[in-house]
């Protein structure tokens, strides 16, 4: 998630494609779009990975459109009930919706970027308690007994499947730490002491 050069998450988040509209002709680069064209013509729309889009946009060779995971439709769905949106579907399996969003945010101008940041922050805060709740629930279920009815109801399962990569990481952290603490509370170490 962070900008660390060595962060795999950061590289994965940059690997998402966004749609760019070229403002100028670029000779001999038609293969970027996977087509048979030899050149990229001005005003043609090309999907390029985000890491390449940076330089195109900053050099004013191209414009970009806000990608579908952050479209108005998704935003209003998030606004209505952040917990029922499946973030993982928006950016692919193990995708990094927040990481991607943050990189798009960097490309935008102040006002739009602020709006984007608000969407990201609000979504994260709305979803966080549910992520942690479920993590803690699962920590105790597995620690105490092999309960067969573990799955919970359908809605919570859908929520878990919809977690984005960053949330998955938090889920694992919370689950681990809860499990460790719980184990400590429950074991008596009288035997070890004597």
């Amino acid at each position: 998630m962070e900008d660390d050069y060595y962060s795999i998450e950061s590289i994965l988040a940059e690997n998402q494609k966004i749609q760019c509209t070229f403002k100028i002709d670029v000779p001999d680069m038609g293969h970027l779009d996977g087509g048979n064209e030899r050149d990229i013509k001005a005003l043609s729309k090309v999907q390029v990975p985000l890491w390449m889009a940076y330089i195109l946009i900053y050099s004013d060779y191209a414009d970009f459109t806000i990608p579908p995971p952050f479209s108005a439709r998704v935003r209003s769905a998030l606004n209505a009930e952040a917990r029922s949106v499946r973030l993982s579907n928006l950016v692919g399996q193990a995708g990094l919706w927040y990481g991607f969003g943050r990189m798009i945010m960097r490309l935008l101008n102040d006002d739009v970027a602020k709006e984007m940041s608000d969407v990201l922050v609000k979504t994260f805060r709305d979803r966080l308690p549910e992520v942690i709740d479920q993590a803690q629930h699962f920590a105790s279920v597995h620690a105490s007994s092999a309960d067969s009815g573990v799955g919970g109801d359908n809605a919570t399962m859908l929520f878990r499947e919809g977690l984005d990569g960053t949330e998955r990481e938090l889920f694992a952290l919370a689950q681990d730490s809860t499990r460790r603490t719980k184990r400590w509370y429950e074991t008596s170490e009288r035997g070890r002491r004597s």
């Binding site: 927040y98 943050r102 945010m105 970027a113 602020k114 940041s117 990481e169 938090l170 919370a174 730490s177």
Partner: peptide, 20 residues
């Protein structure tokens, strides 16, 4: 504190990244 520390600091780190 010890129990909630790992995910609280991670969550705050994420928020720091997301806030403009």
């Amino acid at each position: 504190i010890n129990e909630i520390r790992p995910f609280f600091i991670r969550a705050m780190g994420v928020l720091t990244d997301l806030v403009k």
